[in-house]
Amino acid sequence: MFSHIRTIWLTFLHLFKKKVTIEYPEEKVKLHPRWRGRIVLTKDPDGGERCVGCYLCAAACPVDCIALQATEDENGRRYPEFFRINFSRCIFCGFCEEACPTYAIQLIPDFEMGEYKRQNLVFEKEDLLINSQGKYPGYNFYQVAGIQAGVKGKGEGDNEEPPVDVHSLLP
């Protein structure tokens, strides 16, 4: 019984507490760096597209709102021919970012994407690609991958031995 009264009293005291509501359009929210908002495609330190078109983001997406087509340039470097996110379906769960093996797809602290027409929420690669490395500066997938795609030669990547000489019998 006393606890009930105490509860009522404590609740009453909240009348004089500072309110947590942020009056949004006038007052902006402070978003944390890892806030899961608008999705972007980043670039690697050399300015090349980071996305290699591996389809993992699309597979991870629980609402299937990512569609892309991988293609290759003359050096064998993979990149998306098109990359489309239907933000009218996106639930900003961030699974795509977690699935991305190259840090290409990143969710950034921006949620102000309101549109009057739903069609305008379909973002193509041009709309998604930003000229920045995003949250993971310095990472270049092709530097650590085994393939040769115009970034480094065979055996010239991080932690790689020079290519095997097939004719040598030396250990």
């Binding site: 609402v63 299937d64 709102c65 990512i66």
Partner: peptide, 16 residues
Amino acid sequence: HRYSGRTAMLADRNVS
């Protein structure tokens, strides 16, 4: 069952 992109592959033509 892992088929992806159902809600985006045709979205460039019509979002519905």
